[in-house]
Structure formats: C-alpha cells, structure tokens
Design a protein around this nucleic acid. Structure first.
Lengths: 189, 189
DNA sequence: GTCTATAATGAGATAGAC
DNA sequence: GTCTATCTCATTATAGAC
C-alpha cells in the first residue's frame, strides 16, 4: 500500500471512530493529509470505497491483535483483560468508538459490502472472546457460568455499549464503571 | 403541545432512532408530515432545538414507563424482563436504536444542552435498573452477584450494545443472543 | 402557522491539465 | 498522482407574502 493511501486510511479510520461515517468529509482528511479532495478520489473513487478499505484493514489488524493476545497471554483472564483494554483505549481517547460500533451506528449510510465486512468482524471478535472464556474456564482464571458463545456475545455488546456511554460523559471512568462487573469476573491474570 | 408540533417530534424521534441525528433532514420529516421545510423552522428554529425537544419528551416518557413497570411488576424479575423488552422492541423494529444509543453515537453532532439531557437520561435508566436489581435480589427473582449500581450500568451498556449488533445483522435474534445471559439471570417473572 | 422563494454552505464526485 | 476548476445536489436557515 502506498504511503499516501495508507495515510488516508489512517486518517479516515480515526475520523470514523471519532465522528462516524457521515461525520467526516473528503475535505477533512484532505486537509489533514495535505492533499486535495480530488486526489483522494484517485485512491478511493467513492467514499464507500474508502470506508470499505478502512474496514478491511481493521479486520486484518484485529485478527493479528487477537492472535497476539492469545499467544502472549498466560491465562484466559489475562487475555480477557487485554481485550477489555483494547476497547477501553478507544473510549479513553476522547470518546472514540471501535470501528464496528461506529459503523454499526451508521449502518444506514454504508453499502452492503461494508455491512457484510462488519458482520464478519463482529463474528470474529465474538469467536475470539468465546475462545478466551473457554480457556479461562479451563485454567480457572475467569468465572464462566453459561454457554461461552452466549457469554461472548453479551460481553461484546457490553464493551461496545460501554464505549457509547463513555462518549456521553467524556469520562473514561464511565467505561470502567460499565465494565466493572466484567472485570470482576477475572480471578487472576 | 400542538398537533403539528407533536407530529414533528414523533417523526423526528423515529428518524433519529433509525438513522441518527445526522441521518435525517428537515426535508424528510416535512414530507412525512405533509408540510413545508420552512414550517418546521417555525416550530423548531434550529435542528438542535428539534433534537432537544425530542430528547426532553423521551426522558419524560421514559420516567413514566419505568414507573409503570415498577408499579405493575410483581417481582424484580418481571420488571427486568419488561425493561429488556423495551430495548428489544426497538432493535426488532428494523434495527432501531433507543434514542440514547442513537444520539450517543452522534454525540459530536449535538450541542451541549442535548448532551446534558442524554447524560441525565442514562443516569435515570441506570438508577431504575439498579432499583429493579435490588428488588429482584430481595424477592429472589434475579441473580445479583455484585454491586447493584455497577451491575445496572453493565446491563445498560449490554442493552445498547445489543441494539448496535442487531442493526448489523438485521436479525432480531441477534439481540436475543447478545442478551441471553442477562435473561438467564431471571429466575422467575 | 403555513407557504414560496432563496440564500449560504458544504457535500461527493468528475474533467482535464500538468 | 496531484492539481484547479467545476458540477450537481442536499443541507440548514431566513425573508417575506398570505
């Protein structure tokens, strides 16, 4: 990927997580990237193309991040704590949302390709959390009462919802409060 | 409130829950209401005024709804089930979000008055859920392990997040899956 | 309270030169 | 690949007649 193209994807991802798909314009990222609006159209003919490119790269990186967390964690509890931190970091950066939460809220504004990608990424994250819960139950580092897959989907919903609530108060503490119950389920890391 | 004014608030609320604050225009609801764009400005000089009016009425109605649920429920479990249904109904109606989730996602686009109202309403709902949990713990109809206030905030986050996830798949079953763990904590209604 | 008309702005997108 | 210039359209908002 060329430098310019990567810069544009970076800026667009940041803008989407902060203000949503409808909340930024080519003019915005053109200014930040130091090029003209027309030049962006050379790399991404339509805004939908740009959105999809951001989403695809986000999915790839997430796979890597989740794999790394799984590999470097010495317990399910440690892995779950790392995943919570992933979402907390976004919420703490001026009330950002993870890309999935941001684009889900703007689902009406994105095309079918992007919605498909979104669905896949949500499934991917839920599956990763499920594996972490299974590991945590096995090594007794996480309290897992019910079906791991159901628990995983609830946890993903909670993490995305906690980001939404944090955006309203502007206080990172809001995220911690809304996820305290989840953190308390980790016996040890 | 005049008929026209109320119609406009109704249409705007619906539009906001479906497409967000930035996702509808005066032209949209003018068409639906059968009046001109300019006439809306007579009732609500700016779009921010309209948004705030919708939010204020939403808060008032929510207080009534939550009071009614508290009064008509014969157990904490029944009350919690009714609250879950409240959020499920929106998610099931074509992937709508509750007004709080919708405007939280668009927090960058609304003014300080609206963000204040949003904060108050989130607190109000969390407090109502907390009371329900306390009642449910007392009458042994809900499993409540930790601090009721923390549990309440987690539940609110989970409900809003489940609506986000449901919007992506378009399947009401997604909401049920993401809240199955919560529903399972209700011993009886 | 409603209308038509219009302003003022910003959006995504295209053409064509360099 | 990048630019300037332009197009087309939608947006919020206002002016002023009825």
């Amino acid at each position: 990927m060329s430098d310019t193209r990567e810069t544009l994807v970076n800026l667009a991802e940041d803008a989407m997580c902060t203000r949503g798909f409808g909340g930024f314009s080519y003019a915005d990222i053109a200014r930040d990237a130091g090029i003209s609006k027309a030049s962006i159209h050379h790399h991404f003919p339509s805004k939908q193309d740009l959105g999809l490119a951001v989403l695809v790269r986000y999915g790839e990186r997430l796979v890597e991040q989740l794999a790394l967390i799984g590999k470097s964690s010495r317990s399910g509890g440690q892995a779950l704590a790392a995943i919570i931190d992933l979402y907390r970091a976004k919420a703490g950066s001026g009330g950002m949302l993870c890309l999935c939460a941001a684009l889900s809220a703007d689902a009406h504004a994105i095309d079918a390709r992007a919605r498909d990608a979104l669905r896949r990424i949500n499934n991917l994250v839920a599956a990763a959390i499920e594996e972490v819960l299974i590991a945590g139950r096995r090594d007794r580092s996480i309290s897992v009462g019910g079906d791991p897959r159901s628990e995983a989907e609830s946890i993903l919903a909670m993490l995305q919802g906690a980001q939404l609530m944090t955006r309203v108060t502007g206080e990172p503490a809001t995220f911690d409060a809304a996820t305290a119950v989840l953190a308390a389920r980790i016996y040890r890391t």
